[in-house]
Design a protein around this nucleic acid. Structure first.
Lengths: 231, 231
DNA sequence: CGATCGCTTGATTCCGATCAACAGGAGTGG
DNA sequence: CCACTCCTGTTGATCGGAATCAAGCGATCG
């Protein structure tokens, strides 16, 4: 089991890490941004593990820079990615005592790490903190419910279209989407193979629905067509 | 939009409905049973809608008798069932203001219906109630995360095995599992077609992994084999 | 310059979907 | 009681979409 301390040790002197504001506030509007987490901002290199499935959930995490994926594995190595977490997103929050996913950095990332016990104690005193924790879990639930529909009932084109529209809605409203993750991660998120994802990107480009400036830079040329495909 | 009042009106005199205990307690152990919901126990006939996707989430529900399914629909009618709710299960709890699924009675059922606003107000005063609401949402999240892995990365046999093991773990520890739902519901839960579900049941019976006393009564003859299949 | 990695493309296979027919049971009404 | 219909489930034949197997391309890096 990788501990926070060992991770910090590998990545450098924890004393040099930036520290986030000490204020803790929870309002109804955006629990992820209003719940100001106390803790060190720690760098994680690409493809390093942040926590593992089954480990004790001692910390709560918030992405400052980079991107994180959470996944489950089947015995034979098949992988299902549950979510990508981008700057501003909180992840690793559990109501139970253990993590139910493994979390890894998709790209070099900076993550704020906060003691879970600290927040839990605060939640018993401040209803607005308790409410924020609930809302964060509920949002995660809503996201995975949408993914469930995609995995259960959509074809390859609809899955990729859904992914692109999701990434667009979560990026800076720019026309160009920068995908931090490789094709294999997209495949394992959408329940497809890397080849099918690649072919579908190519197909969408030949349809003029998207433009691939590079394999990681996508322009949504026809958002309406994508929405229609998404069914 | 079907309201509670109209549903009650159709089903008979609400004054004759049984009323659950007035006590409200929330402990750490089992939020579903400890959160004693106040409200009328209402009968719902098989295949009737309890609430619809997009409707205001004014009530919280608990199954007393029967079974409930929640689902989402794609434009072309493809359906994904998110969960089956059996006696003791709470459903329809939302952190937001609207229901994100449609709920229907799988079989003739009795459901305790409680005002959501009432519980929400209580949660701001009693941390243990707030904690129970969070835990209920977290359990739903865990369930749909497991389903996500099934839908994204398992084959037909693995999906049906997972379903049978889930139903077994949720039933009364008896050897015989009584399935309240038809094959079509199982198919829409597992992201398969009714034909594939039927064929897979037949295949598992010829493997001696299960015995089909009737199409709705299944005996798990070899639980270990099912677990192994489940990967 | 060679090696590796990420991605794309082609050829073929295979699992589950689709199309189709039929069987068994429950309920209904003659 | 039986004939009828409706509903649910099973089974067969064929099809198709994504997986698999395989090869090659381009960028990056040592």
């Amino acid at each position: 089991m990788r501990t926070l301390v060992s991770t910090v040790a590998k990545l450098g002197n924890p004393l040099t890490a930036a520290v986030s504001p000490i204020s803790v506030a929870a309002q109804e509007h955006d629990p992820a941004s209003d719940l100001q987490l106390i803790g060190a901002t720690i760098p994680y290199a690409r493809n390093t593990e942040i926590f593992g499935e089954g480990e004790a959930a001692e910390y709560i995490y918030k992405v400052v820079r980079g991107a994180v994926r959470t996944h489950k594995l089947l015995d034979d190595g098949r992988r299902q990615i549950g979510a990508f977490h981008l700057p501003g997103d909180v992840f690793g929050l559990e109501a139970g005592v253990t993590h139910r996913f493994t979390a890894e950095a998709v790209a070099d990332s900076s993550i704020i790490v906060t003691k879970r016990s600290w927040l839990m104690a605060l939640a018993t005193q401040k209803p607005e903190v308790a409410r924020s924790l609930w809302t964060l879990t509920a949002r995660e639930l809503e996201h995975v419910q949408d993914l469930m529909l995609t995995l259960g009932r959509k074809n390859a084109v609809q899955r990729v279209a859904a992914f692109l529209l999701e990434m667009e809605s979560r990026s800076n409203c720019e026309k160009v989407i920068n995908l931090p993750m490789p094709r294999q991660d997209i495949a394992d998120y959408l329940g497809l193979t890397i080849e099918t994802v690649s072919r579908t990107f190519t197909q969408l480009e030949s349809n003029s629905a998207i433009e691939l400036q590079t394999s990681r830079r996508v322009v949504l040329r026809n958002r309406e067509a994508l929405k229609q495909m998404n069914s």
